[in-house]
Design a protein around this nucleic acid. Structure first.
Length: 532
DNA sequence: CTGGGGATGGGGCCC
DNA sequence: CGGGCCCCATCCCCA
């Protein structure tokens, strides 16, 4: 019994010893880990302080640079850039770009910055900071174009800031449309497609990616092309407007389902995601000694990135509803433009297009007026269409009659075929009564064929069908040279003159040649009015 | 800023 | 009905 007690006591003591040893080990481990943790903490804090000091240092340099740039006489900074642009140092590009820091409002957007070299020998490199439209392109965006820069019309050099600090002034292209006719002359920094730009301490690396984007024809993003109508009126979907397709709009904004589709914003986005590496920009400003040594490749001042620049319709494939974005903004449906458009469209009804001088004095009426004022006698000559669009030329002016008569004379004089059916207005002969009826619509203004999309009316069914292509966006004729597309063959044929250089129409006064007769006529009216 | 010219969209109309 | 041409309006670029 006593042995048993002793045994238990020994067991208990052993357990206690083991437990103590285990606790001691655990405590030791915890202490060790805690020591390591504290060590790491102290290192992190140390790094944090170092980074904070660095940040303060950079901010200080930025502030200093701001002061220098804001002062007219502080041109050394820009002078360095100019030299950089000239290729001094290691730069090979003929131009450079730089961006003012975000929130840097010292430069006026439209303020040209003239760089005065110390020697005073040259002002050739006037750095013009073209406005990137501060409202449109956002703060901090600057574009520079040096003289001699050839600005490609169909391609742009784009710099895209990728690495380094996150973009400071990145703009959402869906929010801010591109400024109108914004010249996106974005240039390379040092002519290298990819350049690693290092700071003086080699601790910061900024990668510049040079990207060449082909954006097609340089159709700009005018505000009127961005969902605004020509008259500056935004489309009013859902409102009580007359949905007449704007004639001169080059793109089709199809409202097949009656809903207003506005692609004017997102199809022409041209925004700049600017990134400013404060370290780099200020480095170039402060380390003059380094720069003077010609280490230009180490420094960069700007990084650009450009958003999507889809402006070319042949590139963009839109769904069947939006149909097309053919280089321009979608058409705008609004009542004002509608009326104005109808005004012009009604010219063929109520005014003659012969003499522009005469036309100036011709009071034109929209077909709506004509409809109200139509001659009851005339309406009996042609059946109104289903929409009641009886458009009669009740005020055919003298020019119109002259034109019609001339057409009639020309038509009847040279006709070899038997054309017994004469127009009762111009005596022009036709082979069958149907043709006479169709022809007489020229005089009567009857347009039985109306478009269901825009309420335009046409005298001939083929005209309506052709007009429908405006809404469908169908462009079956493509240029083999430039992939441009046209809805009509004649347009393609006319366009081909661009490539062939054909200029068949010569001015009889100065010999200047034109590819289009209408352009020749305009030229003669403007330049040789006294002779014509 | 402005005018001239190039280019294009699109309606009118004839064949 | 489609092809073709004429013409005007308009946009855009550039000097």
């Amino acid at each position: 019994m006593a042995n048993c007690m002793v045994f238990h006591t020994q067991i208990a003591s052993i357990i206690e010893v083991l437990a103590n040893a285990a606790v001691a080990d655990i405590c030791k481990l915890v202490e060790d880990d805690y020591a390591v943790f504290r060590l790491e903490m102290s290192q992190c804090q140390k790094e944090n302080r170092a980074l904070r000091r660095k940040l303060q240092f950079l901010e200080l340099k930025v502030a200093r640079e701001r002061v220098l740039v804001s002062r007219p006489n502080s041109v050394k900074i820009l002078d360095r850039y100019r030299r950089m642009a000239r290729g001094e140092g290691h730069l090979t590009g003929g131009h450079s770009s730089f961006v003012k820091p975000v929130g840097h409002n010292t430069w006026r957007d439209d303020q040209p910055i003239t760089v005065d070299e110390g020697s005073g020998t040259s002002t050739q490199h006037v750095i013009v900071i073209e406005s990137a439209d501060a409202e449109g392109a956002g703060p901090g965006v600057k574009q520079e174009k040096t003289e001699g820069e050839v600005e490609p019309r169909q391609s742009r050099d784009i710099q895209t800031g990728l690495a380094g600090a996150p973009p400071v002034a990145t703009e959402d292209p869906t929010i801010t449309p591109a400024p109108p006719r914004n010249r996106c002359s974005i240039t390379d920094v040092n002519g290298m497609p990819n350049a690693a730009l290092k700071s003086e301490t080699d601790t910061e690396t900024l990668t510049v990616t040079h990207r060449l984007l082909h954006t097609g024809s340089d159709h700009r993003s005018d505000p009127e092309r961005l969902g605004l109508g020509r008259l500056g009126c935004p489309p009013a979907p859902g409102s009580e407007y007359l949905p007449v397709f704007h004639q001169s709009q080059r793109t089709v904004h199809y409202h097949g389902d009656g809903d207003a589709l506005d692609t004017g914003v997102d199809d022409l986005s041209c925004s700049y995601a600017t990134e400013m590496d404060l370290g780099n920009i200020s480095l170039g400003l402060e380390t003059q000694t380094d720069l003077s040594r010609g280490d230009w490749n180490q420094y960069s001042s700007s990084v650009y990135s450009e958003g999507c620049l889809d402006e070319k319709g042949e590139v963009i494939v839109v769904d069947e509803v939006t149909v097309k974005v053919e280089g321009d903004a979608p058409p705008t449906w609004n009542a004002d433009s509608h009326l104005g458009d109808r005004h012009s469209q009604g010219r063929d009804v109520l005014e003659y297009r012969g003499s522009s001088e005469t036309n100036k004095n011709v009071v034109t009426h929209s077909p709506l007026h004509t409809l109200r004022d139509h001659d009851p006698v005339s309406t009996s000559m042609g059946p109104p269409d289903s929409h009641g669009h009886v458009l009669f030329d009740q005020v055919l002016n003298s020019n119109d009659r002259a034109r019609v008569e001339a057409q009639g004379r020309g038509a009847t004089s040279g006709n070899s075929k038997e054309k017994r059916f004469l127009c009762m207005f111009c005596k022009k002969g036709f082979s069958c009564p149907q043709k006479v009826e169709i022809h007489q619509r020229v005089h009567t203004g009857v347009k039985p064929f109306s478009c269901t999309q825009c309420h335009m009316c046409f005298a001939q069914a083929g005209d309506l069908k052709r007009h429908q292509m405006v809404h469908t966006g169908e462009k079956p004729y493509s240029c083999p040279q430039c992939e441009k597309r046209f809805s009509r063959q004649h347009q393609l044929k006319r366009h081909l003159k661009v490539h062939t250089g054909e200029r068949p129409f010569a001015c009889t006064h100065c010999g200047k040649r034109f590819s289009e007769r209408s352009n020749l006529r305009i030229h003669q009216q403007k330049m040789h009015t006294a002779h014509v």
